[in-house]
Simulated assay, not measured.
Amino acid sequence: MRAAQEGLEKRLQLRHRELLAPARLGVTGHHHLAWGNRSILNKFSAETLNVTTTLAELSRGARQDFAAQPLPQLEELLTQVQTIGNNLGVPLDQLKAMLDVNGVSLSNGAISLHTPDGIPLRMLGTGSSRLLISGLQKAAGLSGLFLVDEVEYGLEPYRISRLLQVLGSKDDQPSGQVFITTHSPFVLRELQSSQLNVLRTIPDIPAPAQPTPSHVVLPLGQW
């Protein structure tokens, strides 16, 4: 209030914005199964995962191994580039095709979860990945607001029930707030009437040229 009276703009600190920012379970969330900047795994282990030195050594080793491999299929092209450069006054001598330093730089995002057979978890089906990511989001507990569009997407009926329970549909004591949308009767059967709201177009307001279908918005109020 005082800042507004004095014409000052009060900005939220980053740590406060992170607490207010809603978590979202979208159609694609494979980045959460690796240690990228926006990954939930990275938030879990931000203070314990430090593999910068290891990744730098791997990048250096990849460049050295590539440089040691003969590439006879490129010799003619390298000679042609060298000739063109020398004719144009650009002195070139003994050109090599090597990995660029920036081209093979590795970061935490290059580390991802795999099965014992070496299959990355980003290859999981849509439903399985959504279930896993929702569980990770809940375990992290970093946001009190969770958004899920078309909660039934990619899930069989019995797995819809499991996802809703992860989101807190059966919890007695809410620890956050969840907003989901759905067109599925299976979702409606798993929820109480107090958790359901139907959104419809108001007749007095002109409808858009291509009206969107009605959604059922479910403010579960808990997860």
Rank of each mutant, 00 (worst) to 15 (best):
T79N: 13
R15V: 06
I160F: 03
L106I: 02
L188R: 05
N50T: 02
E6L: 15
S143A: 10
L121T: 01
R60A: 09
S39N: 03
Q210N: 14
H30T: 10
R15F: 08
H32L: 01
A67G: 09
H215I: 06
L136P: 00
M1W: 06
R15Q: 14
E47T: 11
E76L: 13
L145H: 05
Q13Y: 14
T182L: 03
P22D: 09
F146A: 03
P91T: 12
S214I: 04
N37M: 07
V166G: 00
L74G: 08
K138G: 05
T201C: 06
V81T: 04
V27F: 10
H183V: 11
H31R: 07
Q13S: 12
V81S: 02
W223N: 03
G89Y: 04
T126N: 09
Q64K: 11
L113M: 09
Q192W: 04
L14V: 09
V104A: 01
R63Y: 02
I111C: 02
A67M: 08
P208S: 10
G135S: 10
D204V: 10
E18G: 11
Q195W: 02
L124G: 01
R15H: 14
Y158C: 14
I84G: 14
L188H: 04
I180Y: 00
L191A: 04
G89Q: 06
H32V: 02
L77M: 14
L199H: 12
S134W: 00
D204C: 12
L20S: 09
P116A: 06
L55Y: 01
Y153D: 13
L78R: 05
A209H: 10
R60C: 06
L142R: 11
G7Q: 08
L113H: 02
L113R: 00
